[in-house]
Amino acid sequence: MQVRSGTPIEWLVPLAFIFCAGWVVWHMPAFLLDFVPPDTESQFNRLAAQLQRNDVSPEMGGLFGGFADIIDWLAVVGMAVFGVIGVRTVQRAGMEFESWRAIDRVAVFIGRVTMMLVLLLTLVMLYEVVLRYIFERPTLWANETSLWLAGFVFLCAGLYAMQQRSHIRIVLLYDVVPRWLQRVFDTISTVLIVAFAFFLIYGGYGEAFDKFYRWETFGTAFDPPLPATIKPTILVIIGLVAVQAVINLISDWNKEEVHYGGEDLDEEEIERIKAQVGNEGVGDLDVTGRHVKAKD
């Protein structure tokens, strides 16, 4: 994967994907009513009421006699199209992990989407601050939307961190053992990650499906479907993290030497301090602050 600086497509495609995904999620009751209608009349009426309250385009009738209209279906198609375009066009930034397989593009594109979610989260918070403290007209939706976006950012960032090998490591023992033993450690950690993901998905699938099927909402004035979306996303992301851990193991298997300790050392900063201190060492100088100064 080639290295290149930020281009408009790297901003626009994730934003378009987020817009389409947000539209589909907000109108999910229409798809549930079309494909998996509830068994009870009360649940059916509840989903219909949610759709009526949240529908952005109520003037448009459902396609083929259903509840989801043409814009809803275009949003579904847009999610697929922009997802494929994003995965195929994503490029490695200069500071990102160098060795990428084609399948790593999925995690990297999700990382790009996460970055755009952080931007949107910041804009929502700024908008609420301006309205609340300048115009004294706070919104009903900004707080829950911030929580909603932050939940997705927290989850998706974990997948990106796994692909980038930037998660927290304790490498005191790992860095001093031979490569064959490092491979043993890598295999054990990957097996544990996959086992954890399996049991989490196995144990949480029923609850996640129930929340999604009932389209459980947050119960506030804005009433977004946080439980119906966050719980299934947890299981999806943890499954992708397990897959990514296996991919990392395969990608790093043939590396001759792997040392993670000291990666965060800034060589330029070290050389700057050396130049300031000189060849005679620190002596009576205090180098703990921002600038080198004489000790008191």
Results as ranks from 00 to 15, higher is better:
residue 20 C to G: 02
residue 20 C to K: 03
residue 22 G to V: 08
residue 23 W to H: 14
residue 23 W to S: 08
residue 23 W to F: 13
residue 24 V to W: 08
residue 24 V to F: 14
residue 24 V to T: 12
residue 25 V to T: 12
residue 25 V to R: 02
residue 26 W to D: 06
residue 26 W to Q: 05
residue 26 W to I: 03
residue 27 H to K: 06
residue 27 H to L: 01
residue 28 M to G: 00
residue 28 M to W: 15
residue 29 P to C: 00
residue 29 P to D: 00
residue 30 A to V: 04
residue 30 A to Y: 07
residue 30 A to G: 05
residue 31 F to S: 01
residue 32 L to E: 07
residue 32 L to S: 04
residue 33 L to R: 08
residue 33 L to F: 07
residue 34 D to W: 06
residue 34 D to A: 00
residue 34 D to I: 03
residue 34 D to E: 05
residue 35 F to I: 10
residue 35 F to R: 04
residue 35 F to E: 01
residue 36 V to E: 03
residue 36 V to P: 00
residue 37 P to H: 03
residue 38 P to V: 05
residue 38 P to K: 10
residue 38 P to T: 03
residue 38 P to E: 05
residue 39 D to S: 12
residue 40 T to S: 15
residue 40 T to F: 08
residue 40 T to L: 01
residue 41 E to K: 12
residue 41 E to G: 01
residue 42 S to D: 13
residue 42 S to K: 10
residue 42 S to G: 01
residue 42 S to Q: 14
residue 42 S to H: 10
residue 43 Q to P: 00
residue 43 Q to R: 11
residue 45 N to L: 13
residue 46 R to L: 05
residue 46 R to F: 11
residue 46 R to E: 13
residue 47 L to C: 04
residue 47 L to E: 11
residue 47 L to K: 03
residue 48 A to G: 11
residue 48 A to R: 13
residue 48 A to C: 02
residue 49 A to Y: 09
residue 50 Q to L: 15
residue 50 Q to S: 12
residue 50 Q to E: 13
residue 51 L to G: 00
residue 51 L to D: 06
residue 53 R to F: 15
residue 53 R to G: 03
residue 53 R to I: 06
residue 53 R to S: 09
residue 55 D to T: 10
residue 55 D to I: 07
residue 55 D to S: 14
residue 55 D to Q: 12
residue 55 D to V: 02
residue 56 V to Y: 15
residue 56 V to T: 14
residue 56 V to R: 14
residue 56 V to N: 09
residue 56 V to A: 13
residue 58 P to D: 10
residue 58 P to W: 08
residue 59 E to C: 02
residue 60 M to S: 12
residue 61 G to H: 09
residue 61 G to T: 10
residue 63 L to I: 03
residue 63 L to Q: 03
residue 63 L to A: 07
residue 64 F to R: 10
residue 64 F to P: 07
residue 64 F to S: 12
residue 64 F to E: 08
residue 64 F to Y: 14
residue 66 G to N: 11
residue 66 G to F: 08
residue 66 G to A: 04
residue 67 F to E: 12
residue 68 A to K: 04
residue 68 A to F: 08
residue 69 D to E: 11
residue 69 D to F: 01
residue 70 I to C: 09
residue 70 I to G: 10
residue 71 I to G: 04
residue 71 I to S: 06
